[in-house]
Design a protein around this nucleic acid. Sequence first.
DNA 1: TTCTTACATTGTAATTGTTATAATTAATTT
DNA 2: AAATTAATTATAACAATTACAATGTAAGAA
Lengths: 143, 143
Amino acid sequence: MNPLKEALDTLKDTGVRITPQRHAILEYLINSMSHPTADDIYKALEGKFPNMSVATVYNNLRVFREVGLVKELTFGDASSRFDFVTSHHYHVICEKCGKIVDFLYPGLDEVEHLASHVTGFKVENHRMEIYGSCPECASKEVH
Amino acid sequence: MNPLKEALDTLKDTGVRITPQRHAILEYLINSMSHPTADDIYKALEGKFPNMSVATVYNNLRVFREVGLVKELTFGDASSRFDFVTSHHYHVICEKCGKIVDFLYPGLDEVEHLASHVTGFKVENHRMEIYGSCPECASKEVH
DNA sequence: TTCTTACATTGTAATTGTTATAATTAATTT
DNA sequence: AAATTAATTATAACAATTACAATGTAAGAA
């Protein structure tokens, strides 16, 4: 079953209306295979939806996040990036050029358990990113 | 040797001038034992430095980050929080009230190595946070 | 010391990502 | 079809951060 159809089912199950805008945003997120910002999405869809508002993009990304379809990657200054949730993967980020590469890893359940045990928190999820230089930037560094 | 003195030495070694403002910001970061925002620091020091600008706080936090004395914890909407780098610890964050609790963990070298191997990146560091509900908020949830 | 230069700080304006609001439009229920 | 609910739009507001220009301060050279 393709991920778009699955996502639309999830929306239907949680009682979220499937509007043309939502359909298009989801489709873009799935097909882009990148980690677009809200503005990237807005720009990419302005051909199809000339009247769509940025607010719609933000609103719907929030909705998608709330039902667990999308993860938000936040950074300090720059805009958040949005990632369609598929398999369990993490991100390796180049500090020079900003490139983001997916990287599969079985998960850090052990860390979550330990954290829960030590702090008494009811642990829900975690975030992990790895930072460094991508091969291109790393080779440029050494002159 | 106390951490403030060590930090000042680091600054000296990297050729960063030790100004009264920098001294005070570092001191506050070390003693507060919390994870203050730039504005927290600004407000906390306005008694001692009535003329200090917010820009100075931001500038110096950036300097400290660049020489590795301070870590910046970024979130989406809210302000960044700044953490004086001491031992290797991670953060457990309450999604309800925002409380941040430190939590010691030996590090995730294995993940870094694997990431480096799989993606070809020159890995420098990583970021990990755990999210959930703190004991207080968790008990409030269940009515 | 005095001059010169480089770095720091200050105050303010500008920027930028995001959210709130109110009005309009569209979809669903009765 | 009418009533209700939700979604979209356009725009204004907000808040965190940065850029900029002016001023101040410290270190090294003459």
